[in-house]
Design a protein around this nucleic acid. Structure first.
Length: 416
RNA sequence: GGACAGCUGGCCGAGUGGUCGAAGGCGCUCGCCUGGAACGCGAGUAUAGGGCAACCUAUCUAGGGUUCGAAUCCCUAGCUGUCCA
């Protein structure tokens, strides 16, 4: 959530930043007014409640001393009605404010380029040069089927479209990749955690998926539980509503989970193959830091993900997402795109974001800065999307006969 | 699935309608004591919000209710434990 106090203090500054994310100045003005009117309502309630408390105390004294209470009772009864009204007003205003405030995205950093969509993202650097093929490289679904690694039809039979099944070496490679990534992350100082794949509404509000993006989530029938779209949700929310000691920070965690997305807005995109599935494996990095160290952590997380690709000898590039492509909660994001020779283009395989205090404010994750409690910074990033990594291995390591070379670093994980 | 018991501050634990934001203990912080430490002694020690000082509001698992007034009574949910299926 954006800082509503800051909005009061520096309306111009915040409005300039949020306009770049398509938030209108009118909405922000409304928000500012609602915040102020909530403050007034709170004060009114507190004044009335203070009177009520004082009179109730007096009531006790009267009773003990055996005085006549009828006059006091009349006063207190009258005030009680006022208190009830004030509570109602306050609740209404609170709700109005939250409805608006929870749907406002994070402020983009100044370093985020303006832009409409991924076309406007800025390439930061390339790592490893794509290999020249002396034949036309195939796309991964062709290779996957030829090698018997992935069965797209049977996935659809079991569930619906955008589900697939891995067999044999395909399945083993997925498992090897997950283990390799988790080990790699652990060596970089990220503690492995294993978390629930179902979370409640509060968790999703904490990280920003709700209330705005409910359409893309799978919800349990008749229960306020959702399948996680990313491990970022359970892992970040581990510390929801907690005040962490400074020496506990930074918290660095890595988790492997399945992720579930309806892909409601992606009809027709990537319908073939396993680029865009409703269920996919992902190894995630999450960090919780003090505000002054979050950018250092960000660089470490980007390096971690990029170095995994380098270890797998997969060419990739880093791009700085533009305002139009930036996610709801992110202040800035670096995407890592892996080279897919079959598709003859770079495709997203990881996304690393610093949300600064945006999620911390929603999830109430704070730390003790001396005597004061302050919001932490939270960061998240994939390292990596497992299915897409497998796709990249297939396409980059293919031979003319369709066979695929196994990356050296994975061989120990495959007993080779 | 059924029955019962419980959920209080960092931890343990007292508290069954008003003087309880909460005794006592442990822990922690500071001071005294000491060559240094332990022991002992003294003081302090929840969180959030508003004024940003006095002070006020909220919080004893969560949500609702009764009452002038709730940690304390009632209802619902969650969790934990014990027993029975």
């Amino acid at each position: 959530m954006i800082d509503l106090k800051l909005l009061q203090k520096d309306f111009e500054g915040m409005s300039a930043k949020l306009t770049r994310k398509g938030v209108s100045a009118e909405l922000l003005t409304t928000l500012k007014e609602k915040f102020e009117s909530l403050r007034v309502a709170k004060q009114e309630f507190e004044t009335l409640q203070a009177a009520q408390n004082a009179m109730s105390k007096e009531f006790g004294v009267y009773k003990r001393e055996g005085k006549d209470i009828s006059e006091l009772k009349a006063k207190v009864d009258a005030n009680k009605i006022k208190v009830a009204d004030a509570v109602e007003v306050q609740r209404e205003r609170q709700e109005e404010l939250e409805t608006i405030a929870m749907a406002v995205p994070n402020m983009p950093d100044d370093s985020v380029p303006d832009g409409k969509d991924e076309e406007d993202n800025i390439e930061l650097k390339k790592v490893l040069t794509p290999k020249e093929f002396d034949f036309t490289p195939k796309e991964h679904w062709e290779l996957a089927e030829q090698n018997g690694w992935i069965d797209f039809e049977r996935g659809v039979k079991l569930a619906t479209s955008r589900f697939s099944v891995s067999f044999g070496m395909g399945a083993r490679l997925e498992r090897a990749l997950i283990n390799f990534m988790l080990d790699f992350n652990r060596e970089r100082g990220f503690e492995e955690v294993s978390v629930p794949a179902l979370v409640n509404r509060q968790a999703l509000e904490g990280t920003g998926q709700l209330p705005k993006f409910e359409d893309d989530l799978y919800k349990m029938d008749g229960q306020e539980l959702f399948l996680i779209p990313t491990a970022e949700v359970p892992v970040t929310n581990l510390y929801q509503d907690e005040i962490l000691a400074t020496d506990e920070l930074p918290k660095r965690m890595t988790a492997y989970t399945s992720c579930f997305r309806k892909e409601a807005g992606a009809a027709g995109r990537d319908t073939r193959g396993m680029i865009r599935q409703h269920q996919f494996h992902k190894v995630e990095l999450v960090a919780i830091t003090t505000p002054d160290t979050s950018e250092i952590m960000f660089e470490q997380m980007v390096s971690c993900a990029s170095d995994i690709l380098t270890a797998l000898k997969l060419p990739h590039r880093l791009v700085n997402l533009c305002t139009g492509d930036l996610g709801f909660g992110a202040a800035h994001t670096t995407d890592i795109e892996v080279w897919l020779p079959g598709q003859d283009q770079y495709r997203e395989i990881s996304s690393i974001s610093n949300t600064r205090d945006f999620q911390a404010r929603r999830a109430k994750i704070r730390y003790k800065n001396g005597k004061k409690n302050e919001f932490v910074h939270t960061l998240n990033g994939s390292s990596l999307a497992v299915g897409r990594t497998l796709v990249a291995i297939m396409e980059n390591n293919q031979n003319e006969d369709g066979s695929i070379d196994i990356p050296e670093v994975l061989k120990p994980y495959l007993g080779m």
